[in-house]
Design a protein around this nucleic acid. Structure first.
Lengths: 237, 237
DNA sequence: AAAATAGTGTCTGTAAGACAATATAAC
DNA sequence: GTTATATTGTCTTACAGACACTATTTT
């Protein structure tokens, strides 16, 4: 048996069949107290009529990050938002046509920035059938019950939710889903939506303010029918 | 312009040049209070004589996880250890020969289980030039100063260290690096090695015992020149 | 007995949860 | 004034850090 390095060096690009490499991008936002993801409808077999994450094959002269940005821009016109590699899905049978390895990415964007989607795209609420950071596939709710999702994309979205819950405690995830100025109540709602749990208001407020990364703008809410809350801005330390 | 789904479905496997996909595996252990990783020496250009992580191309009928296990088994004879996907490195120029996307994995194993390595393999101590979870490439120490490492493998190993530090607080990482029975002192030493920081002894002990996942075996250390510590076993709740 | 580390008990400071009281805008 | 939420203050509890003290083995 030869070692890996021999194998690696003896390898000729044309010698062996090789997998295709795609990126799939989960654009996530929070709308009406629910996590939602952008899906597009499939027009061809397999899974014709089902929904999937926007995706595309990786160009031979294109980095993975660039491919993800391109897919996002092509499908939504959005760029410049928080985007991060999630996980690479490589089971042999995940695509029935041919061997496709998918490097999954996720993006976060405030609900306000999602204006005009393409015709075949839809923001779909995510139903998480597990608690905490258990992980696993999620369900996606359409107008008439759960919708049909192609490939392993329910698992990909579930992995996004797991990642978000994990990062919520130590990374500035919530701010990516809010406008530039926001109230502490809005921030808490985002955290509760992501974590799937209610949070203690007093403690949340103290913890956020103690971080030193929230700056009061001096401005306040307008026309809210009750005492208006102070608007804050996020400023990394 | 066509949408992604059209592109995806119109894609014929033979139409476009596609990247190669490899897995690289960082086998990590703790030896003499230092994190160390298994590297192998390159025998061919490029980077001839430099060191790299064990790696191999992904077979067309082989999942990514299986490819990682195969690489690990081929190079070390080890199987059945904690192994997890780390991150996928896909910059265009990371391999000067051709486009290679590397899905990196890492494995954890107790120092005791690393007996007879192949001739061209070496356990190399990791020097982390950043603190906390900053991330970035690490340095690798050979007998005569830092060693020459091929491709972006210093960054891959750095990413492993970052991941380990992140998981240390909530996942049973430490136990993977210890024999089945261990003292609290040994466990603390592992945690300190991974985190790169000293930990409070009292607090560490309380926290570990409070987890309820450490079971006293009733046995104790032998011949240690001082009061022997109780040996514990890790039992997931 | 000396050396060296294991293990226990207690005090203090910090932060979270709970709860009460006050503030401020729209109506 | 009423309503509804914002904001502040206080009390209690849980836990980490610090420190002192006791325990147990080898030499």
């Amino acid at each position: 048996m030869t070692g890996e390095s021999e194998f690696l060096d003896a390898y000729d690009a044309s010698d062996f069949p090789r997998p295709s490499v795609a990126v799939d991008v989960a654009l996530v936002t929070v709308a009406e107290e629910k996590l939602a993801v952008l899906l597009v409808r499939r027009k061809e077999h397999p899974h014709r009529g089902a929904w999937q994450l926007p995706g595309g094959f990786v160009g031979i002269d294109e980095s993975l990050d660039d491919a993800a940005k391109r897919v996002l821009l092509d499908k939504t016109g959005i760029s410049g938002v928080f985007t991060e590699q999630l996980y690479t899905f490589g089971d042999v049978d995940r695509d029935p046509r041919t061997r496709v390895i998918s490097v999954a990415y996720y993006s976060l964007v405030g609900a306000g920035r999602l204006g005009n989607l393409h015709d075949d795209g839809a923001l779909v609420p995510i139903l998480v059938p597990w608690s905490g950071e258990t992980g696993g596939a999620v369900d996606l709710r359409g107008p008439d019950g759960l919708i049909d999702v192609a490939f392993d994309h329910r698992l990909i979205v579930g992995t996004v939710v797991k990642r978000l819950r994990g990062k919520l405690g130590y990374a500035p995830i919530g701010y990516e889903l809010l406008p530039g100025e926001f109230t502490l109540h809005q921030l808490q709602a985002i955290h509760e939506t992501i974590s799937g749990a209610r949070l203690n208001k007093d403690s949340f407020r103290r913890r956020m303010l103690a971080s030193g990364e929230l700056v009061s703008t001096g401005r306040r809410q307008q026309n809210v029918g009750h005492r208006p809350a102070t608007l804050y801005r996020y400023e990394p330390a």
